[in-house]
């Protein structure tokens, strides 16, 4: 009884509200990159990998300046010297300082790795974007061409190209890797474009009269970029390895220019007597590849659209 009375005396009053007022926003403003960074920070292995890579890049850039030697002059008083206070990583069979050679070689290896990954990715994304957006016959023809090109084993193709283009310089390697490497990313980009182009913001752009180029470059490709970046970081170690392999069999960078593969190749001949000459560049190749792989994994998790609203 008491309750009924209370109900009667304090009826619910209708609140005035304007239908036009949109809801307020409470969440502070965060940018896309900030969100990614927050997710990335939580993956410790990826973070550590990124830091190690950063240190490697600094050493590659400034390492050669830290001692008085250069990568090509010989010190006949210290041939095959083990690591000492003068020669921090020792010297090779011609008395060249290995500390300097490792970092100068790292410049070459990383430069090739980064450029020979970026170029094929850019080409692949544009190709995949065109193929996926237009679909139909265009898509069919482009995909069959890619199938055929992918049917040729990449390493044979690479070696042939290097033989034709002339071995021994960096640009040859980059061109060869670009020509053999764009197909995979074209396929990946096409797949993502096919998914994204059915989304309504792409249709909205079309109904506004946007040109295909605008749709591909403003809407489709930028939205594949997050996942493509992961592909890039995972391809870099493969290119480092391929470059090392080609240099090892004498098709890479010509001596006296060092690269990591070149250093390993020279050191392999004296591996039993002077293992440090072999182990040191090997260790850096392995470390770099491992870090790029772990970084790629971490980025994939951080950028995964399924973990983000």
């Amino acid at each position: 009884m008491e309750r009924t009375k209370a109900w009667k005396t304090f009826p619910f009053a209708k609140l005035e509200r304007s239908g036009m007022e949109a809801e307020e926003m409470v969440r502070p403003h965060t940018s896309y990159l900030k969100d990614v960074w927050r997710a990335f920070k939580r993956r410790k292995t990826a973070l550590v990998s990124a830091v190690i890579l950063l240190i490697l890049v600094v050493l590659v850039l400034f390492g050669p300046m830290m001692n008085p030697y250069n990568y090509y002059s010989n010190d006949y008083t210290a041939i095959n010297s083990p690591p000492t206070a003068q020669h921090w990583f020792g010297t090779d069979t011609l008395g060249r300082d290995l500390w300097t050679r490792v970092w100068v070689g790292g410049r070459v290896s990383l430069l090739i790795a980064i450029l020979a990954t970026l170029f094929p990715f850019l080409i692949g994304m544009v190709m995949g974007g065109i193929s996926g957006y237009f679909g139909g016959k265009v898509d069919m023809i482009m995909m069959r061409c890619i199938d055929i090109l992918m049917g040729i084993p990449a390493m044979i193709y690479n070696i042939l190209l290097i033989v034709v283009l002339g071995s021994g310089n960096i640009s040859t390697l980059i061109i060869a890797f670009t020509l053999t490497g764009w197909m995979g990313s074209a396929r990946a980009a096409r797949g993502m474009v096919l998914q994204i182009k059915a989304r309504e913001f792409v249709m909205a752009s079309k109904t506004l009269g946007a040109s295909p180029a605008r749709i591909i470059f403003r809407h489709l490709l930028p939205n594949t970029l997050g996942i493509m970046v992961v592909g890039v970081t995972l391809t870099i170690p493969m290119i480092i390895f391929a470059e090392a392999f080609l240099s090892f069999i004498g098709l890479g960078v010509a001596p006296p220019n060092p690269s990591w593969g070149q250093l390993i190749s020279i050191a392999a001949e004296v591996f039993k007597s002077y293992p440090y000459q072999f182990i040191i560049p090997c260790a850096f190749v392995s470390l770099t590849m491992l870090c790029f792989n772990l970084l790629g994994d971490g980025l994939r998790d951080a950028l995964d659209p399924k973990l983000r609203a």
Binding site: R199, E200, F201, M203, A204, S205, T207, L208, R218, N223
Partner: peptide, 20 residues
């Protein structure tokens, strides 16, 4: 001109804006 004069509002507000 047609594309300027005829516009559409889509059903799914979550898919109709470019997230980037």
């Amino acid at each position: 001109n047609y594309h300027k004069n005829v516009q559409i509002i889509y059903q799914d507000p979550y898919a109709s804006l470019n997230p980037l």
